[in-house]
Amino acid sequence: MMFRQKQDGAALIMVLLIVAIMIVLAVGLTDGVRYSSQRLLNQRLMDQGYWYALGGERIAVFALEDIANDTVTALNQDWAREDIVFPIDGGSIAGLITDEQACFNMNSLYRAEPATGAEEDVLAAELVFTALLENLQISPQRAEFIIGRTQDWIDDDFSPEGIYGAEDLSYTALDYPYLPANNLLESVSEMALYAEFEEDEKALITPYVCAVPAVNTVINVNTLPINKAALLAAAIGNVLTVEQVKVVLENRPENGWADVASFVTALELPLSETVPTKLLQGLGVKSQYFKGLADVFYEQRQMRLFSRVVLKNGKAIVYAREYGEVF
């Protein structure tokens, strides 16, 4: 009898053990199914948000094509509105378009040939960038350093140029080695790889610069915001102070200046002061490059799509996209 009771107890323990194992397996299976279902739901909602974002992109393309053949690009045009919000089922789409020629294009520093050191060999872009950093209270030496590093980063050779030049050997010798792009900048975030920013330099400089996939672009005096007066002052050779340039921008015509000559007239410079011709060639009243943002809020989820657009032959062409936040 005692032996049989022991057998019954062992059998009960085995049954309980099997039940416990089955419960653990069932819980694991249930959790797996739940997580898979949630993952699929999230993926479906993000995919839907992405398609809504592409819809917002198309609206931006239509808005830009409306002004593609205009002779002037200005802030009174529909593309420049900042209050665009479209309701959708389960959320909304907010849109914003910014002019990528209302900034200093770092790729304009590109040099096809090494510098000769002669005064007339200095690029207009080099003068503007140096003057911009001067307006931001950053020394000419730092400007020269960043210019030299930028030019070596974007040129297509492997030979360092100038006293601040750096190529493969400089970057591969770092604790975390990498190679220079040897191509035009795609984002100003690349500057962090070579500019060796000091203290608050990055925060000071980056709001004024951009990376447009072209070398010969102009700064649009019609779309440059008032808070970037330091750049416009630099673009005209600092013949006016930043505060004086702010006043000029505050009095800018609603439709923008018809041409660069009208802008220069509005500066009301004394006869003894002129804007160097080399710098005037870097100014314009029409833009080709833009960045659109489609900010989708859908079912308590957010999708941000940045679209880079160029106007060519009357068409707005999306040539690059970035997702999420841009650093």
Rank of each mutant, 00 (worst) to 15 (best):
L127V: 11
T130N: 11
P114E: 07
L132C: 00
L127A: 13
L127P: 06
F129H: 02
V122A: 14
G117R: 14
N107T: 06
E119V: 13
M106H: 12
Q101F: 13
E100K: 15
M106F: 15
L136E: 14
A124Y: 04
L132T: 02
E134G: 14
V128Y: 02
T130R: 14
L127E: 12
I138L: 13
L136P: 12
L123D: 03
N135C: 09
A102G: 04
N107A: 07
A112K: 03
C103T: 09
T116D: 02
E120L: 06
T116W: 11
A124T: 01
L109E: 05
L133C: 04
L123M: 10
E126W: 07
A118P: 00
E134P: 10
L133S: 02
S108F: 10
Q137I: 15
A131S: 12
C103D: 01
A131F: 13
D121T: 09
R111D: 00
C103S: 08
N107D: 07
E126H: 11
P114Y: 08
R111E: 01
N135W: 12
D121W: 13
N105K: 03
C103M: 12
N105H: 11
Q101P: 04
A102L: 03
L133G: 01
D99A: 08
S108M: 06
E120A: 09
N107W: 01
V128C: 06
E134T: 15
E100D: 11
S108Q: 08
A112E: 13
A124K: 11
L136M: 04
